[in-house]
Design a protein around this nucleic acid. Structure first.
Lengths: 116, 116
DNA sequence: CATCACGGTATCCTTTTTGACACTATGGGC
DNA sequence: GCCCATAGTGTCAAAAAGGATACCGTGATG
């Protein structure tokens, strides 16, 4: 099924790279990771990630949405209510996120944090 | 299954993030991916990735080395000979790389490349 | 009428990343 | 002596990413 771009010879890694490019943004994986547990409102996300500025969070969310990884639902209410949840596509990234988390837990345990 | 890191409260995603930070560089995953198949010399890598400038490749390799993911072996020969290979730590990233590759192959097959 | 909460925007600036391009050292071969 | 290959460095500039800060619109509430 390595049906990637087929043609281009030296660019097999492309699939890996393109996958990476979707989750590269500074806080994107964190967002995805949080959303694995369920839908969250904008400000709930903010509270979970106090270090992210509003502008950044909005921006990352918009990109994740554009890439079809999350779904943004706006409720026409007065204090606005906007909910974010993973799309099927986004949820399918779970194995990737988990592989990364496990690797990190194992290999970055502050102990051997730097070069082993 | 919210088994997170337990300790640090607001920074559970940290492991994931830090893992990501090691492979984020523009061409790093490609390098790692290529090295999964075995040791390569500097120019072999260059030939495999014609779009990377020499400066960039060197830079990425240095960072990968600093993070303990690859091993750089210099042979004191006259046309210099420098070989790069994965360290044990680097090789342990294989599941992550594979998870990403598989996701990419499945979800980025040019067809549904954009938002599903 | 002022205030509040929510979910943003807009603007500006700094830092980081990436790229272009040229230059270097070494020792062997011609 | 000059050129070659390998594996780099160095410098500069462009582009992308990220951050700080401030402002906006809407109804409900007081």
């Amino acid at each position: 099924m390595p049906r990637v771009s087929s043609k281009i010879p030296g660019v097999q890694g492309c699939a890996v790279e393109r996958t990476l490019s979707l989750i590269e943004g500074k806080w994107k994986i964190v967002v995805l990771y949080k959303l694995l547990r369920g839908t969250l409102r904008f400000n709930e996300l903010r509270r979970l990630m106090p270090l992210v500025t509003q502008r950044m969070l909005t921006h990352q969310l918009r990109e994740l949405e554009a890439d079809g990884l999350i779904i943004r639902t706006v409720y026409a209410q007065v204090p606005p209510r906007v909910e974010y949840s993973l799309s099927a596509r986004g949820r399918s990234l779970e194995p990737v996120l988990m592989a990364m988390k496990e690797w990190g837990d194992t290999n970055l345990s502050s102990q051997e944090a730097q070069a082993a």
